[in-house]
């Protein structure tokens, strides 16, 4: 625990009531808000440049296609998290100096994984409102009893008639944003149109291995670590019950910082890169609240 936490958190939390615990929790959490997380801004735009540069590098044979495929899969796996900070307006809230950058970052990168930024935002905020609700959580289809079932479920829910797609569109409709349904269709048709154009221009394998297949693999990876691992199995509903702190077998970086997902659900304005530090400070309070914690 940091010295700042020692200064704030009393040694014996059992003497505090719910209101006092919540006040203390907020006091700590607020310390981590309000700063622009420049690291994730650099991550978003740097990753966009890396992925775009793979195309000429592969086409002009500066790197082999297999290496391009590996790098593209890593790159597309790294697209979502910066947009996730932007979905929560962490780079800049409406009316603030950096709001334009927040929105630019989201829109400029989400297309790489063929999803409109606004759809990601609307559905993700819905996930926060209804986490683990079997009828309303847009990510409920990622729930599974074990890791292999989770991977299979993620594959099944990428099929044309899968429930996951319907849940996302239903969420957009509930939010009064039917325009996002049309926009999602435009993204999808645009993606397939570009893939077909590339394939018939002599770049079929490049299109397949730099965009289509990496997008599928990245999506499965993201659903596994961002959705299944922190919310399933056996998690309930409610502020301190719908997600957990967990120890990943592949470490925090390879599980994309999701070991500390509980901090994100409780205080979604905290930047991703600050969630481990915030967790360490909040830990005694979360323990007092009965949260599930493995570290």
């Amino acid at each position: 625990m940091s010295s700042a936490a020692k200064a704030i958190v009393p040694a014996d939390l059992s003497q505090l009531n719910q209101g006092q615990l919540r006040k203390l929790e907020l006091q700590i959490a607020r310390k981590y808000s309000g700063k622009v997380p420049w690291g994730i801004v650099a991550w978003a735009f740097g990753n966009l440049l890396v992925w775009l540069s793979l195309w000429p590098l592969v086409i002009f044979e500066a790197i082999p296609l297999w290496l391009g495929f590996v790098l593209a899969t890593i790159s597309l796996s790294l697209v979502y998290l910066p947009t996730h900070d932007a979905q929560h307006y962490i780079i800049g809230r409406p009316g603030t100096k950096w709001h334009w950058l927040n929105e630019l970052m989201g829109h400029a990168t989400s297309w790489m994984i063929v999803l409109p930024f606004e759809l990601l935002r609307v559905t993700h905020l819905d996930h926060h409102r209804h986490t683990n609700d079997p009828d309303l959580d847009v990510d409920i289809t990622s729930h599974a009893d074990g890791p292999w079932q989770a991977i299979w479920s993620a594959i099944k829910h990428r099929q044309p008639n899968a429930k996951r797609g319907d849940d996302y569109l239903a969420s957009a409709a509930r939010a009064g944003r039917p325009d996002l349904i049309l926009l999602t269709i435009v993204y999808k048709l645009g993606h397939i149109g570009i893939l077909i154009a590339l394939a018939w221009s002599g770049y079929a394998l490049e299109a397949f291995l730099l965009w289509w297949l990496p997008t599928q693999l990245a999506s499965i990876y993201l659903i596994f670590f961002l959705s299944w691992a922190p919310h399933s199995p056996g998690m309930g509903t409610g502020r301190y019950r719908d997600t957990k702190n967990w120890r990943s077998k592949v470490g925090n970086i390879l599980s994309m910082g999701m070991q500390y997902h509980i901090v994100h659900h409780l205080h979604p304005y905290i930047p991703l890169m600050d969630t481990p530090a915030a967790y360490r400070e909040l830990r005694p309070i979360l323990k007092a609240q009965g949260c599930r914690m493995e570290m």
């Binding site: 397939i192 077909i196 394939a199 018939w200 079929a204 394998l205 299109a207 397949f208």
Partner: peptide
Amino acid sequence: GFLAPVIAA
């Protein structure tokens, strides 16, 4: 439109 040329390539 896409799988056919990918398979051929």
